[in-house]
Nucleic acid binder design. Structure first.
Lengths: 348, 348
DNA sequence: ATGAAAGCGCTAACAA
DNA sequence: TTGTTAGCGCTTTCAT
């Protein structure tokens, strides 16, 4: 066969002809080798190898209403959190012969809705990572298998990192270092993880009566977000800060350093996610570790479990899975010691 | 229509029935609105909106031998270079109604070959980013449109960043700062960009007779690679170093700092790519800037140009496109022999 | 301007 | 164990 551009395209028909069998036998030899005679199988495989035949997956799925493709929708490809998850999704899918469509909303809820809508009919299921939009549209959410990472949508499976225990560990660490007034530099207000962490903050406050936790607002999950937060952090007169993620934490550290504070001497800082950035900066950033690749893999497993053949292996309620976290202590946190009168008000 | 899982699937047939036209008219109303009467068009669009119909792209392409999908193959999703390119590819493709399959080789040439092979039949074309394998397999390379980013393959278009001018600018900068013995910490030996940069090194050596350029070997494009290079850098007794990319540069800086050197006072360091990492570390890293998103967009444009309808708009030889670079000077480079005030205290 | 009908590459009954 | 034959959802001639 010759395609539009003049290239040779080997289809199942060519293979069948070369092997001297019908196309059904070729199909079977690939999908269910035990169902064809060893001899035929041999000749089919030889022909495939010979002609360099590669099945067209889109066509394969057509009949069964499958696409053998899943979609992955993330807010920001250049955010290491999402590339970590993406790596897991890609790896797991690849091992199951599934292709992955990638889509990036750029943190734009409107784009997110459009992209999700575009993905739904082209895939067997979707991994929706850290949604920034409500997604009430049942024509989309109810339309196909959907796994939400770091979020919750009625009618969709979900999986997340255990933010609550993560922030608790971070607070306990700071508490043990004698910090009693701690700030939280929040992320995007639409972030589900951010909401979970604020819950953790409240819970911890209840457990440690003499601990003051100060919410310092919502900031973009970027270096600039960290910069913007510096003023509020200093004004709040806290001795330690939890930041929404590593990148915000690092932006914050740079800014307060420029303002004359030393980290960790004057301010302890804890990040989230423990991406490789935490180990890249000076001082190294204490951070709450999450296994992002596993998160991506689990999300994909959750999705694949619903796909293949009928609903034999009951789609058991796995909703609400949580992945453990642990705190990695580096150099950005230190005990609250004897300190000179705060230089807080005087930048420079 | 009801699919395997019991979900409602709206096909072109439902729309046709609802609008009281044939499926051909629905198809036309979408693909070529001028070819249907305004009245029909109205009713079709209303029905589509009403039923929430979304066309199945895989099926659409089937007839014409297209998939409306391109593939993107990168060595490492968590490398900001590739996520930058990926963002450009995703954006450009999305604007053309094209989906993107993502694949990650994890720097493994074997996996790269397999993934490329898997991609070729499922897509209309492929963006192959920074290949680490030779790819002589004509059944793959010749089989479909292929654009190589930072590489060259016979039978494929290619596009790259102008590494040569980039490294030249970096060298001139260091030369102007009176550095006369400069080291180059190379990247993966299979990297095409690395080869281009070494060419630039040789060319510059010819231009500046009193300049010594020392090649310090090949290292993985990771933080660890930078760490490993530290010993060689110090042993080479150079006053300045060019690193394969930002991440290697940063790893190197951390290591030499631990060994007691100050950057830039004792050693000037220049990175490549100017990812946001360069602005994240202390001291800020001088780096050769590339516009990664544009690189991804251009690559995709190159690919799309070959796809749509016959070869009307001649696939003119656009091979060998080069994107400009420019040097962004930060704090990791300083004049040789000038005593700088320790602006950035490394607690060492 | 529109409909009928023939596929696209492949899978999945159904026969043989 | 095999081949034959319907389609999957859609595009695209070819008639009308």
């Amino acid at each position: 066969m010759i395609d539009v551009e003049g290239r040779v395209v080997v289809t199942i028909r060519e293979v069948a002809a070369a092997a001297g069998v019908s196309i059904a036998t070729v199909s079977r030899a690939l999908a269910d080798p035990d169902k064809v005679a060893p001899g035929s199988r041999q000749r089919v495989l030889a022909a495939i190898d010979d002609l360099g035949y590669i099945p067209n997956r889109a066509a394969s799925g057509l009949r069964g209403g499958r696409t053998n493709t899943i979609g992955l929708l993330v807010p920001d490809l250049t955010n290491l959190y999402f590339s970590g998850v993406g790596r897991g999704v890609a790896a797991e899918a690849s091992e199951h012969g599934i292709s992955v469509f990638i889509a990036e909303s750029r943190e734009d809820p409107g784009a997110e809705v459009k992209l999700l809508r575009g993905l739904v009919r082209q895939t067997d299921g979707i991994v929706l990572c850290s949604p920034r939009a409500p997604h009430e549209d049942q024509a989309v959410v109810g339309a196909g298998p959907l796994v939400v990472v770091n979020g919750a949508l009625t009618g969709a499976e979900s999986i997340a990192v255990d933010d609550l225990s993560g922030i608790t560990a971070a607070l306990e660490h700071l508490f043990a270092l004698n910090h009693r007034r701690i700030g939280y530099v929040g992320g995007p207000s639409s972030s589900w993880s951010d909401a979970r962490r604020r819950e953790g903050l409240v819970a911890a406050s209840a457990r440690f009566p003499d601990l003051q936790v100060v919410s310092l607002g919502a900031y973009p999950a970027t270096v600039e977000g960290g910069h913007s937060a510096a003023g509020a952090v200093i004004a709040a007169e806290v001795s330690a800060v939890l930041a929404f993620n590593d990148i915000v934490a690092i932006g914050l550290v740079r800014s307060v350093q420029r303002m004359g504070l030393r980290v960790p001497n004057d301010l302890s800082v804890v990040g989230f996610d423990d991406t490789y950035l935490a180990d890249l900066v000076t001082p190294g950033l204490t951070s709450v570790h999450s296994d992002l690749e596993t998160l991506g893999r689990r999300a994909t497993q959750l999705l694949l479990r619903v796909l293949p053949n009928g609903r034999d292996d009951a789609p058991q309620a796995m909703t609400g899975q949580l992945l453990p976290t642990h705190l990695v202590v580096r150099d950005s946190t230190a005990p609250l010691g004897v300190r000179l009168p705060p230089r807080y008000g005087s930048p420079g």
